Simulated scan of single mutants.
Amino acid sequence: MLVPREHLETLLDLPTELHLEWVDLQQRLVRAVTDGLGAQGAFVANNNVVSQSVPHLHQHVVPRTKGDGLRGFFWPRTKYVDAAESADYAARLARALEAPSG
């Protein structure tokens, strides 16, 4: 999930001067989930007001693989087996984000 440090409620509140940086960060996260987690692609989305459970701009970047069960805007929710699996995913994403983009 991509979240700006500055409080912005929706995408409409994102200042024009941050648009390029916001898209660049989305691309970095998509690359991280595909390269770092071995996903075939990514689903990128955000809600504005309706269905926005947190009143702060945030972008979902969900790893995708063929047959993963994503239907429309709903993906199957799963839990990590344990804290070690969660930490492994975090470390893989961190490594992928640190790698030079190419």
Rank of each mutant, 00 (worst) to 15 (best):
D35W: 03
D35I: 02
D35F: 00
G36S: 12
G36K: 07
G36T: 09
L37N: 08
L37I: 04
L37V: 03
G38A: 12
G38Y: 03
G38C: 10
G38Q: 08
A39I: 13
Q40I: 00
Q40E: 15
G41H: 05
A42R: 07
F43G: 04
F43A: 10
F43S: 12
F43Y: 14
F43D: 04
A45N: 08
A45G: 13
N46S: 15
N46L: 13
N47V: 08
N48F: 01
N48E: 15
N48D: 15
V49K: 07
V49M: 08
V49E: 13
V49I: 15
V49N: 03
V50K: 10
S51N: 12
S51E: 13
Q52I: 01
Q52P: 04
V54T: 13
P55G: 01
P55E: 10
P55D: 12
P55Q: 07
H56V: 11
H58A: 02
H58V: 04
H58N: 07
H58T: 05
H58M: 04
Q59H: 06
Q59K: 04
Q59D: 04
H60C: 06
H60K: 03
V61K: 02
V61E: 04
V62N: 01
P63Q: 09
R64C: 06
R64K: 12
R64H: 09
R64T: 07
T65P: 00
T65N: 11
K66T: 14
G67V: 02
G67L: 04
G67E: 06
